[in-house]
Design a protein around this nucleic acid. Sequence first.
DNA 1: TGGGGACTGGACAACGTTGTCAGAAGTGGC
DNA 2: GCCACTTCTGACAACGTTGTCCAGTCCCCA
Lengths: 392, 392
Amino acid sequence: MADAPDASGTADPASPADETGPAVSPAASKAPGARTGARAAVPHAARHGGRPHAGRPTMKDVAARAGVGLKTVSRVVNGEAGVSSDTERRVQEAITSLGFRRNDSARVLRKGTTASIGLVVEDLADPFYSPLSRAVEEVARAHGALLINGSSAEDPERERELALALCARRVDGLVIVPAGDDHRYLAPEITAGVATVFLDRPPGRIEADMVLSDSFEGARSGVAHLIAHGHRRIGFIGDRPGIHTAKERLRGYRAAMAEAGLPVSEPWVALGPTGSDRVRADAARMLDGSAGTAPVTAVFSGNNRVTVTLVRVLAEPERRGRPVALVGFDDFELADLLSPPVTVIAQDPADLGRSAAELLFRRLDGADDPPRALSRPTKLIARGSGEIPPLD
Amino acid sequence: MADAPDASGTADPASPADETGPAVSPAASKAPGARTGARAAVPHAARHGGRPHAGRPTMKDVAARAGVGLKTVSRVVNGEAGVSSDTERRVQEAITSLGFRRNDSARVLRKGTTASIGLVVEDLADPFYSPLSRAVEEVARAHGALLINGSSAEDPERERELALALCARRVDGLVIVPAGDDHRYLAPEITAGVATVFLDRPPGRIEADMVLSDSFEGARSGVAHLIAHGHRRIGFIGDRPGIHTAKERLRGYRAAMAEAGLPVSEPWVALGPTGSDRVRADAARMLDGSAGTAPVTAVFSGNNRVTVTLVRVLAEPERRGRPVALVGFDDFELADLLSPPVTVIAQDPADLGRSAAELLFRRLDGADDPPRALSRPTKLIARGSGEIPPLD
DNA sequence: TGGGGACTGGACAACGTTGTCAGAAGTGGC
DNA sequence: GCCACTTCTGACAACGTTGTCCAGTCCCCA
């Protein structure tokens, strides 16, 4: 019974598709004047009446307006062949006059592909992750895909929520900077076809593509650099111990010390959250010496955030008298203009993002080879702070 | 009738939902080895064969597996009341054993709301926009919405493409840092119910909500600060003249100069892209004096990117002899650690993002009042570079 | 004038979910 | 034993699009 009136309804040029379905009656009753003419006259009146997109024209409306079939509109909208130029013109007119825009949700449902990828990072605002996000976005754009992204705030549960929400949206692929160390929750998704690339840190308890910087070698070479400049008591301040890169960098630190035959006093090593309070406390402890341990003459910093705090600590007036050498993992803007300029182990965040995204799209294009782990090299950039000799 | 064979099919753990629909035949022919058994045995073999999510279990599959009706599954998935705990348990079992995840595309189509908002900025990697994005994301998250974002690269056409693509995805709302100056293209979308807030710059030729920093007053006070420290020849280097904030800040500069009765030589004013080459050239021109114009003794910088380049220019050895005062619009990390520390007109990007997002969600919650323009104050932070006295 | 091919247009089902509505099963009172 | 009621369940349509398939229409050539 629904069909007959429905069909005649769409033949009507100004077809109120609304009125057939009971679902939209609230919207219809709230904005009854929303006829073609009235709509233009009162821009803000009915704007937020019902559901956000209630009352949007559909292809059916366009078809009725142009006096053609539904599929013909679809063809025009998608630039498919097989529509005479005259018909096309009529359809285009109807489209612009109704303000029609294709509903991609419906398209996605039908086609099974969303042309969007998800990105989960720790913090979108972190100067390490923002160029990385941008690079992923550029690659996505080049492939005609949109980017949906979120910050995990280094919380495994939030990472999981985000990743699964993205999967529920049926993103075509996922780039994840993992916060947690167990990603079995993604197994069904990967099996179902969500291409997944882990970035900066490896996946936990699951096999998948990954793109990592060589944290171990980077840290090793940075600490070796300090040793080469005469330091024998070197501190390490890094990110939380659960984080893979923190562990790897610590391992690099220990390796460099071991290679040089230098002992490591445990008070010289501090892992933890990168908030400035914690870093300041740990720095103070190792710089001033404590519990019978001699103070360090150099510090290796595990990342970006830590380095910036350390730069502040070392710049404090009371520390000026006894210069301490510093090498930091991650480059950062203006590092070269500080005094002393900061020696760093540089990664290229944009390159990491680009590599991960390209790997992802290779998968989406059908690459079937087993998961691979890409390692990107780091580069020591000597600027001054890492070349300060020890005082004693 | 369709149910009986279907049910038996889905009872099979590795149900080949593919093979029932003709829609997937092209995919099947593309990856002919993608047989059912192979999938389980070789996890990565058939993974990217067809459409990304082909063969995912649906509610129908879950229902068949649990021996219940479709709607009951829907009820369980959405935590609706009216399901006995025994039935719920059976459904939950079926869900986990099949690895079912609700398809939000279908949900969106049905419900008309996507629980996602779009954000268009100039450059996600810019240290001004990344905390802003993060703030928008936080607010979105608090409202249970995801964030889809993109960079316009300051290209109006690209901004338009992005914004319309987001509308086609039926985002519930849109936060835009506009690149262009004509947003009439958004009128049909706004009419259709896409809540839209413009951020950092006003919309062009359209009425809509906006959240702006007080660029005029900020620049005026910054230049007045330089004047108060004795400068009479002050340069202004800003962003491209098409950009609203650039114009406003220039206007503030001129106002401060006029208030002090100081003339402005046109070579002291330079607008253009923020790439370092252009800024360096303009800086050199006004610092060295040219064509009978005396060199400036202070520079006011129109933004973040320009300031950083100017800091580098002023730090060059050959410029050290003649210190030049500098005040920059936008604060930036480590500004206080440079020598001299940089005096800035600070905006709070996170606050801007938060305000815009909150305004957006107010609209989505039904607020119907006319579009409003929020102005956020700026704050002068004197650190040293802006207090350098003029040489002559 | 008729027949074949090329082109154009439209009816219909399907994608996976949720809202509506009605039916079935269970409970208690009389 | 029956009715009224509540609680639970499922059939069905609809959301707006695209793929399939068939039916016209037009033109050209024989």
